[in-house]
Simulated assay, not measured.
Amino acid sequence: MLLFTLQRMLQSIAVLLAVSVAVFLAVYAVGDPVELLVNPEATQLEREAMVSRLGLDQPVWMQYFTFLSNAVQGDMGTSFVHAEPALQLILSRMPATFELVFLAMLVASIIGIPLGLYVGLKEENRIARAIMTGSIFGYSIPSFWKGMVLILFFAVWLQWLPASGRGETVSVFGIPFSFLTVDGLRHLAMPVINLAIPNIALITRLTAAGASEARMQDYVKFARAKGVREKRIVRRHILRNILIPIITVLGVEFGSLIAFSTITETVFAWPGMGKLLITSIYQLDRPVVVAYVMLVTFIFVVVNLLVDFTYALLDPRVSLSERMS
C-alpha cells in the first residue's frame, strides 16, 4: 500500500510538471495581454511600466521558473485583469462548478443505472431497444445545442425556468449553495439536465452491457436454481459485480465535467470555473488560465487515485499492485 501510494505520488508530480510546462508555453505563445489591458492612448513609458509590472519583460524560461517557484508555495500568480491571486479567484468559483457537476452526476447515476439494468435484463424488449437507441442521440448531441434548445423550450416558450444565473443561494460554512433554495433549484435545473444527458446515456449503455453479460454467468444461474428472488439476484449478484466499471466511469466523468463544463456554464451564464476560464482566455489573463489547468489536472490525479482505492474496496480480488501494473 505504501509503495503504491509513493509511486502514484511521484507519477502525479511528473504529470503536473509536464502539464505546467506545456500549458505555460502554449499560453505564452498566444497574443499580448498588454494590448488588452493598457489604455489605447497610453504612452510608451506607461506601456513599458505595465510590461515590467506584469513581469512580461523577462525571458519566457525565467517567467516559467518564477511561476513554478511561486506555485510550490501556493502562489499561482496574480490575475492581470482582476488584480487578485489567480488561485483565489478560481477557488471562489469552484463551489458553483462542483455543485453543478455533483448534481449532474447524481442525476445521471439515479437514472442511468436503473435504465441500464432494465435494458441489460430485458434486451429483447421494445422499450429496452428504444432506450438504447435514445442513448445514442443523448451521447451524440452537442452540449451547446442542447443548452440552447432547453433555454428556448423551458425559458422562452413555457417560461418555467430562468435562462441564466445562479439564483438565490444559502451559505453553509461560508460556501454558497443554490440547491438549498427553490430559486436556486430552478436556476440549476437546465444546466444540470444539460450536463446529465450524455452521462445518462453513457452509464445506461455501460450498465446494460455489464448486466447483459453478468446475467449469463454461472453464479447467477446457480442463484436462480436455488430459488433466490430475482430482486436479490439483481441487487447482490449482478449490480454488485458490475459496479467496478461503473465507478471508474463515474470518477473519470466527474473529473471531465469539472474540466469541460465550460460550454454549459457559458450557455447558461453559470458563474463557475468554466465560465471564468472562457472569459480569461478572451482577455489573455495568463495566470488564471495556467492556474485553472493546473488545478483541474490536480483534481484529475486525485480522482483517479481515489478510483484505484475504490477498486480494492469493492472487489478484494483486485489488488493495488495489479492496478498499478
Results as ranks from 00 to 15, higher is better:
L3A: 14
L6P: 06
M9E: 00
Q11I: 10
S12W: 04
V15R: 05
A18Y: 00
V19W: 00
A26D: 01
Y28L: 03
A29R: 09
G31M: 11
L37E: 08
V38Y: 04
P40V: 12
E41Q: 15
E41A: 14
A42Q: 11
E46F: 06
R47N: 11
R47C: 03
S52G: 03
S52Y: 11
R53I: 05
D57R: 09
Q58F: 12
Q58S: 14
V60S: 10
W61M: 12
T66E: 03
N70C: 01
G74C: 06
G77P: 10
V81Y: 05
A83M: 02
P85A: 13
Q88R: 14
M94S: 12
P95R: 13
F102G: 02
L106D: 07
L115H: 02
Y118Q: 08
L121D: 05
E123I: 08
E123R: 12
E123Q: 07
N125G: 03
R126I: 13
I131T: 07
M132R: 07
T133S: 07
G138R: 02
I141F: 02
S143P: 02
F144W: 06
K146S: 14
G147N: 03
L150H: 02
F153K: 04
A155K: 08
W157Q: 08
L158G: 03
Q159K: 14
Q159R: 15
V172I: 15
F177S: 11
S178E: 12
F179A: 10
R186V: 00
A189V: 14
A189R: 01
I193Q: 07
L195P: 02
L206P: 03
T207N: 09
G210R: 09
S212I: 00
E213K: 09
E213F: 02
A214W: 07
A214N: 14
D218C: 02
Y219F: 15
Y219T: 09
Y219M: 01
K221Y: 12
F222D: 00
A223L: 00
A223N: 04
A223P: 10
K226M: 08
G227I: 04
V228N: 00
R229N: 12
E230V: 03
K231Q: 13
R236W: 13
H237Q: 08
I238W: 01
I244T: 15
T248G: 15
V249F: 12
V252M: 14
I258R: 05
T264H: 01
T264Q: 03
E265C: 09
K275I: 07
L277S: 07
T279K: 12
V290H: 04
A291K: 03
F298R: 00
F300Q: 11
V301A: 05
N304P: 05
L305D: 04
T310N: 09
D315E: 14
P316E: 09
V318A: 11
E322K: 14
E322N: 09
E322F: 12
E322T: 13
E322A: 14
S325M: 09
S325W: 11
